[in-house]
Design a protein around this nucleic acid. Structure first.
Lengths: 356, 356
DNA sequence: CTGAAAGCGCTTACAG
DNA sequence: CTGAAAGCGCTTACAG
C-alpha cells in the first residue's frame, strides 16, 4: 500500500468558499431566463431540445449544482424519506433487520438524489411525536412504517398528517397506504411440517408479541400447521421477541414434566438464546431437542448446531418498499406489493426426536 | 388474512393543506416586524424581554412552526447531521454497534430539533462520493466519521470539503477534527491478564483487519500484554472482523498440532462463531478452550457458555460524539473527548486450561 | 431597542 | 416555444 501524499489536496480555499454558482449564472451564460433553466433541469415541456442541450451544457461547464435548499423551499418538497424505529436500543442491536433493510432502501434512493432520515426512539408516544415533527418541519416526503401493531395508532396518525406512507406488511385495520408484504406464514408451516416429518409430535412455539402483527401471524400459522399435521394446537409461549424473553421461554418449556422435543421460535435471536439455554440445561440440540428460527440472520449459520430457520430478505424488502414509496409520492398512488414468501432453510439444529 | 379492497385511497384534504401560518402572521398579530419575530425566535439580543414574551405567546397561539426550509435557505444550514456507513450490508447486520450508537446520537439531536441523515454504502469509493453529495446538496451541517482506517482517505476528503466532522477514535494521521475516543487496549490487556492468571500460556488472538485502526490497536494491545505477562508474542490471525472470518480463523487455530488453550477475539461476533466452531470440532468451551470477545453485544450473555468479553458502550459514545459535533458546529472548535475505557466482563467462556 | 428591505436560490403561474 | 416577475418563508445587515 503506497501512499499518495499529494493526493486530494486542492487549493484549500476551493469548494466550500468558492462563490456558489447559481441558476442566474447559468441563465446569463446560456442567454436565457432563470425560469427556462429550471424547466430544463426538471425536464419539463416547453423547452426546445437544442435550448435544453445548451442549458445543460452550460450548467455542466460552470459546475452548477441546483440548491437543494432553494428547491425545497419553492417546491415544498424535502427530497428525503423517513424511517422511525421505536425500540429499546439495547434490544434493537441484536436485530439486523434494519441495517439490511436500510441498505436496500439506499440502493433506490441514492441514484435519485434522495436521502434517508432515520430516527431511533424509545417508545410509541415518542414515535408519534416524531412523525408530527417530521411533517411540521417538512423533513421528509414520505415514510416507511414497520413493525406493524394491532390496531396501530400510527396509521390514523399518518393518515391525519397526510404523509405518504408505505407499510411493511398489511395492517389489520383500514389503511389508505400501499403495503409491501412478504408472506411469513408459509415458512412457519414448512418448519412445522419439517419437524413433523422428522417424527416430532410435541412441538412448541415461542411466539413474538401478539400485539405485533407478525408475532400474531406467525403464531396463527404455527397453530394451523400443527392442526393440519394432526398434532393438536401445540404449546405456545408468548414473548416480546427479545433475546432475554426467548431464553426465559425456553427455560420454562424445558422444565416441564413433559417438555417439547422441538421448538419453533418466532425469530433467530430467540432461537439462538434457546440453543444456549438447552446447552446450559444439558439438553442436547438436536438429539434431545430440535430448534428452528426465523430470519436467517448471519449468526444462524455460525452457532452450533447451525440453525434451521426461515430465510427473510430484508434488503429486497427495502428496495421494494423504497420503489413503492417513490411511486406513491410521484403519482399519488401505488399498488400493494407481495414479495416471494420466506422459505425454510434446513441446517443442523433440527433432527429426529429422541427415541424414548 | 382478509384484504381491504378499499385501501390506498387517502382522503387527501386533511391537515396537510391547512393554511400554513408564517412569520408574517405572527408579526402582524404581535404588532412587530418579521425581523423581530425572527430575532425573538433565535434568542438574539435586541429584543426586550416583554416584547419577546409577547411574540412567543402570539406564536404559540397561532401554532406557528418556523419553516425549516426557509430557515435552511436563508441561514445556509440544514439542521441535520450525517452518518455514512461503508460496509457489506450482509455483514453489517451482525454488528449492533450502529443502532446503539445512533440511538445515543438521537438522544442529543431530537431535543435540538436536528435530524440524522443515514447512508449505508457498499465501499469506500461510494462513501467519498456520498460525502461530496451531502456537501453539494447542503444536506448536513456535520458528520460522524467511524471505523477509522490507516491513512484514511476520508480525512483529507472531509478536510477539503470543509465539513465539520467528529472522528470516532483518533486518526493515525494529521486531522483537523476533534476525536471522541474510548480506550479499548485496556480491555484487551485485562483479557490477557485474566487468562494468564487462570493459568493459560498458549493464548492466541483473532484480530480484526490491520487496515482498521481499532483492529490494529487491539492487536498491538494483545501483543504487548502477552509480552508483559512473559508469554511471548502470542499467535495472531488477522481477519476482516466478519463472523465468517472469525469462524475460519478459529478452525485454523484449533487444527494445529499444538492449539492454543485460549483465544482472545477482537469482537463478539467472531468470538461467538469461535464457540460454534469449537463445539463443532468437539472442543469443549471453556474446559478445553477459553474464549473472550469484545463489545458485549446482547448475544454475549445468551450463548452457552456466556461470553467473557469487554464491554463497549456505543450509546454513550453516540451521545458524546453528537454533543461534540454540535459544539464544533456552533463554536467552530471542540476538544477531544476521552470516554471511560471499556472493561472486562467475566462470564463463563473462560476458565483454567486443561491440566494436560 | 425596533422597522423596512434586501436576499437566500430556486419554481411557477402568467404574459407574450 | 420563451421571458419577466412574483413567491416560497425565513435571516440579516442597515437605518433609525
Amino acid at each position: 500500500m503506497d501512499s499518495h501524499p499529494d493526493s486530494s489536496t486542492p487549493d484549500a480555499s476551493a469548494s466550500k468558499d468558492a462563490a456558489k454558482v447559481t441558476i442566474a449564472d447559468v441563465a446569463r451564460q446560456a442567454g436565457v431566463s432563470k425560469g427556462l433553466v429550471s424547466f430544463a433541469l426538471n425536464d419539463r415541456p416547453g423547452v426546445s431540445a437544442e435550448t435544453r442541450a445548451r442549458i445543460l451544457s452550460v450548467a455542466g461547464l460552470l459546475g452548477w449544482t441546483p440548491s437543494l435548499r432553494a428547491r425545497s423551499l419553492s417546491s415544498q418538497r424535502s427530497f428525503a424519506l423517513g424511517l422511525v424505529i421505536a425500540r429499546d436500543p439495547e434490544v434493537l442491536g441484536s436485530d439486523p433487520f434494519f441495517t439490511s433493510f436500510i441498505a436496500g432502501v439506499e440502493t433506490i434512493l441514492a441514484p435519485e438524489g434522495l436521502a434517508l432520515v432515520l430516527s431511533v426512539v424509545p417508545d410509541e408516544k415518542t414515535e408519534l411525536a416524531t412523525y408530527r415533527t417530521l411533517v411540521a418541519d417538512g423533513r421528509v416526503d414520505g415514510v416507511f412504517l414497520s413493525d406493524l401493531r394491532r390496531d396501530d395508532a400510527r396509521i390514523p396518525c399518518l393518515t391525519e398528517l397526510g404523509l405518504p406512507t408505505v407499510t411493511l406488511g398489511r395492517p389489520d385495520q383500514p389503511s389508505p397506504f400501499p403495503a409491501v408484504s412478504i408472506d411469513d406464514t408459509q415458512g412457519i408451516a414448512e418448519s412445522v411440517r419439517h419437524l413433523s416429518s422428522l417424527g416430532h409430535r410435541r412441538i412448541a412455539h415461542v411466539a413474538g408479541s401478539a400485539a405485533m402483527l407478525h408475532g400474531r401471524r406467525r403464531r396463527d400459522a404455527f397453530t394451523q400447521a400443527m392442526q393440519a399435521a394432526g398434532l393438536g394446537q401445540g404449546q405456545v409461549v408468548e414473548t416480546d421477541f427479545s433475546i432475554a424473553a426467548g431464553a426465559d421461554a425456553t427455560r420454562r418449556l424445558l422444565r416441564q414434566a413433559e417438555p417439547p422435543t422441538a421448538i419453533v421460535f418466532a425469530n433467530d435471536p430467540m432461537a439462538i438464546a434457546g440453543i444456549g439455554v438447552a446447552q446450559e440445561l444439558g439438553v442436547r440440540v438436536p438429539d434431545d431437542l430440535s430448534i428452528t428460527g426465523f430470519d436467517d440472520i448471519e449468526f444462524a449459520r455460525y452457532v452450533y448446531p447451525a440453525l434451521t430457520t426461515v430465510g427473510a430478505t430484508p434488503m429486497v424488502w427495502g428496495r421494494a418498499a423504497a420503489s413503492t414509496l417513490l411511486g406513491l409520492i410521484r403519482t399519488g398512488s401505488a399498488e400493494d406489493v407481495e414479495l416471494p414468501a420466506a422459505r425454510l432453510i434446513v441446517r443442523g439444529s433440527a433432527s429426529a426426536p429422541p427415541p424414548y
